[in-house]
Amino acid sequence: MPGAISPALAQAAGAATAPLDVSLRINGTEHRLSLDPRTTLLDALREHLHLTGSKKGCGLGQCGACTVLMDGMRVKSCLSLAALAQGREIKTIEGLAQGDELHPLQTAFIERDAFQCGYCTSGQIMAGVACINEGHAGSPQEIREWMSGNLCRCGAYDHIVAAIQDAAAVSSSTQGG
């Protein structure tokens, strides 16, 4: 087999930036994009689809501001290449509310004043929604452990934990238990 792709490799320098056709399903809508292969899912959301709710903090998976749900599970969109997210169901903060009706965790963040500058908030909320859905919001201690992938430089952690507890209580009462 060696040799089979040598000509292609030789052309790599020129071909590498050739755009890829990528189809992304975001908040229930299919988007067809032409992207540089290096484009992360986060950059595709922000720069190509103008969904700027997901924030770019560190770009290295450390801060969690870019958290979105992929097939229902929370991931860091800055660590995902957009082309490899094709075929996955992606939900961002823009797709969380039902029309004008906020998600219970969005309401809880407002009521608990769970932010100051707000930069980490959409990531905190997306991670918090997953934390509740996973069943990891049973106590403040459990919430802190399972929200450790989201940093808040304003230090609003106590209010964030309280908001997640509130929303978890709403979630369990609406599910009858």
Binding site: G61, G64, T67, M70, M73, R74, V75, K76, L79, S80, A127, A130, C131, E134, H136, W146, M147, S148, G149, N150
Partner: peptide, 9 residues
């Protein structure tokens, strides 16, 4: 290890 998001990926 890591964070819940990273462990999902």
């Amino acid at each position: 290890s890591a964070s819940p998001q990273v462990r999902n990926q």
